[in-house]
Design a binder for these strands. Sequence first.
DNA 1: GCCAACGTTGGC
DNA 2: GCCAACGTTGGC
Length: 150
Amino acid sequence: MNHWLIKSEPNAFSLDDLKRNKREPWDGVRNYQARNFMRDDMRVGDKVFFYHSNCAEPGIVGLAKVASKPYPDPTQFDPDDSHFDPKSRRDNPRWILVDMAYVRTLKRTISLRELKDCPELADFALVRKGNRLSVMPVDKADWDFILGLE
DNA sequence: GCCAACGTTGGC
DNA sequence: GCCAACGTTGGC
């Protein structure tokens, strides 16, 4: 069992959207490191922090879980989609995703500000300067500590 | 809206 | 293979 954090801009796709849809292909990820985590390391049932970025109060707002095995992101083949990738081929897809399923909404947002102020989380990738990864692993110890803040 | 940090692209 | 230019992310 691995633990993860995924970012989403609530203006584009929020935790409430995931709650409404119950389940969602985590499409549009166009970063190789993030792709590799989904393709190689995620397992059905892995627990996931849902993080809101680019908003009034960036932070962890809920829990999700990995709900499928990896498969090709269909948006890469759709010329009308903003994530269309003309260099990707159907017989050798470049972008791989998994489905995410809603688990629950936290009682309160655990803000980035608060996480940055925790010395226990000094090594957590999310709080390190310049971090831009939209899919990242979370140590079990960090996961438990963060949930304990709720 | 600003801008620092980072990843990707492409000329050489 | 280097690296400058460019585009994107995302906090503030």
